[in-house]
Design a protein around this nucleic acid. Structure first.
Lengths: 234, 234
DNA sequence: CATCATTTTAAAAGAAATCTCAGCTTGATT
DNA sequence: AATCAAGCTGAGATTTCTTTTAAAATGATG
């Protein structure tokens, strides 16, 4: 099935579309229902990641719809979004099972923040897989492990930092000055050649035994991490 | 174990006491801190069911305190409660990891509704997550007991905390700085070596008499808990 | 207040990582 | 091709990090 989406039930077309657009720009998938009846049909038909509900809706009002959704799906987060700002209204909303209640007018950024706060509760961080890849090189920032293909590679702390920096800038040439600052906290005026030495260490470990080299030198400029050999770069 | 309580960090004594009274009337247990420093101490010392945070606090402001709490306890719900109602303020609050943000003045019944809505989200898992496992190591957070295979292991309080932290981050390298902050509440600039000593204590108890070691050192990076020896990672 | 367990400090030895240095190789320029 | 600058490499010195032991502080208990 398609990725989970956010359902927006709102009869003001402009408002609905602007929320939808804003959310999509922030990486969410959305579906819009312009009245309560369609909202009900959609929410019955599939499971949403989150539902945004206006209260003054044609056909079925937001409170009823909220109660209906809750009866069938205890876990989907629901945000009520309405012009009615009295405490009584809010309490009614929470009573029907809403998780949050936002009064119009509001700033989109606040809605977004509240959506994120709520989603954080429901899907406790999908294991924050912090894994970076370049070609068949894979570096895991959590376990601090590195693999090329399916061969594990042991790196020391400095080597790992350097590789991480290169991977984060894959496809870009990074100067020795940048590296010196980032990894060694020095200003690269000192007559040291640690960087060359460590690039050499890295090459021995991640490139030497593999046909495709990943670390490339641009003389006078710095180093770049990418697949493809020096012949066909640019 | 004592029943979980709600922590209220708020310097306006009348406000704090009135919230506390209202919550107790509704069946909650509460504790009050009248400044940020005490709030920090309390939140460090034990796990709360929920935390209500004022922002304009003496000593430590609410944003900092919120970030601090989040770093140590990812899951406790935090409600910010403040007179500063601009969207910027709210976004800042959510950025620090708050779950809700209520602007004064507000009605108590709304606060109560929002607390309930939030708790509804958090409660569901306390049963299953109370026992953590890594390989044949089993640690029970309720009874504070530890077993390896079917051999019981006695740990002291600090040893248990350290092991719990490692287990919660199983498969990830945790730095000594992280450990120092989480377990000792120090900033790890102090020239102490308690951490090494305690890792050594733990190893004697949970690894020494077993063929498969669980605690592994990544020199210059930290420690990681996982099955499998350093040779065949992952 | 004496005792015992726990926590923390201190110090030494060992292991591993980091860095320096000198000589070598490669690439750019003429 | 000759020259010079830039980068590479291997060996070993230096430094840092980790482990381990022992003993001193701290705290809890009766």
């Amino acid at each position: 099935m398609a990725e989970p989406a956010i359902l927006i039930v709102e009869d003001h077309v402009k408002m609905a579309d602007s929320i939808s657009k804003g959310l999509e720009e922030n990486g969410f998938t959305t579906e819009v229902a312009y009245d309560g009846f369609i909202g009900k049909r959609l929410s019955d038909a599939k499971d949403y990641e989150l539902i945004i509900l206006d209260i003054n809706l044609p056909q079925i009002n937001g409170y009823e719809l909220c109660a209906h959704i809750r009866k069938k799906n205890a876990s989907v987060p629901i945000i009520m979004l309405t012009a009615m700002g009295s405490t009584e209204d809010k309490l009614l909303g929470f009573d029907q099972g809403a998780d949050d209640y936002i009064v119009k007018p509001f700033e989109f950024r606040e809605l977004l923040a509240r959506i994120k706060a709520l989603l954080k509760r429901v899907q406790p961080d999908p294991k924050s897989l912090r894994v970076l890849r370049v070609a068949d090189l894979e570096i895991d920032l959590d376990s601090k492990t590195v693999k090329r293909g399916n061969i594990s590679i042991d790196l020391t702390a400095k080597e790992f930092l350097l590789l991480e920096f290169l991977v984060q800038n894959k496809g870009k040439v990074v100067s020795k000055a940048d590296i010196a600052e980032k990894i060694w906290n020095i200003t690269f005026d000192t007559g040291t050649n640690v960087i060359e030495v460590y690039v050499n260490f890295l090459r021995k470990k991640i490139d030497k035994n593999f046909p495709v080299k990943l670390i490339h030198t641009h003389i006078g400029m710095g180093y770049i991490l990418k697949a493809g050999d020096d012949a066909n770069q640019n």
